[in-house]
């Protein structure tokens, strides 16, 4: 399965129209600005679980440098836009991840990094591991790999940025919004 990418279609543009005279002319630029701002300022939550967290740190480190894309790490969920779940999720940890997700302000995004967070990874037959973080939080980008290389994570982040750029900003409706179509990176199925 490749990466799902949809260019903005005419119909999609039409659907953004608000039925007031000249509405689109007002709304569209505002939306563009909001999309641009959100996309370019993805602040991530300092939250690592296991091996992938080390690769996440490497991604922020000099050679890969996430700051280039305006991505900095914030320690508190209140100031974060994206949660990178980097590592396996145990039954004991799952409620806390759910709580962290709930504590983040909208709009919020989740990147499942590594095989464990995507689908349980090598621990699929363990009874204490949740088979994928998408069992309790909506995931926007799945980055496979064990652990994924930093380049892979950056790819996922860039894909997420593209997705945000296509997102319908003004009527964004939490988890039920249609844009919640996941992007899958690095899965060779």
């Amino acid at each position: 399965m490749g990466v799902k990418e949809k260019p903005v279609t005419k119909e999609e543009m039409e659907s953004w129209r608000i039925p007031i005279p000249g509405g689109a002319a007002i709304i569209a630029p505002v939306e563009r600005v909001a999309q641009w701002a959100r996309k370019n300022s993805l602040w991530s939550l300092t939250f690592g679980l296991s091996c992938c967290a080390i690769e996440m740190m490497s991604t922020a480190a000099p050679r890969y440098d996430l700051d280039r894309f305006g991505m900095i790490f914030r320690a508190t969920p209140r100031q974060a836009d994206v949660m990178i779940v980097a590592g396996w999720v145990s039954v004991k940890m799952a409620p806390y991840i759910k709580r962290l997700y709930d504590q983040m302000p909208e709009p919020k995004y989740v990147i499942a990094m590594g095989g464990c967070a995507c689908a349980g990874g090598p621990y699929r037959d363990s009874i204490t591991i949740v088979k994928g973080v998408d069992h309790f939080v909506p995931v926007d980008v799945y980055v496979y790999g064990c652990p994924p290389r930093p380049e892979n994570l950056i790819n996922g982040i860039l894909k997420l940025q593209d997705k945000i750029a296509r997102e319908h900003v003004l009527t964004r409706n939490g988890d039920r919004a249609p844009h919640r179509e996941p992007i899958i990176i690095g899965e060779n199925a």
Partner: peptide, 22 residues
């Protein structure tokens, strides 16, 4: 030993603006 903001505006000059709007 990093680059810092780079891709938003020229040399990342638009970075803070994006942060603020967001």
């Amino acid at each position: 030993a990093r680059l810092g903001p780079k891709h938003v505006g020229w040399q990342g000059l638009g970075q803070t603006l994006a942060d603020a709007i967001k």
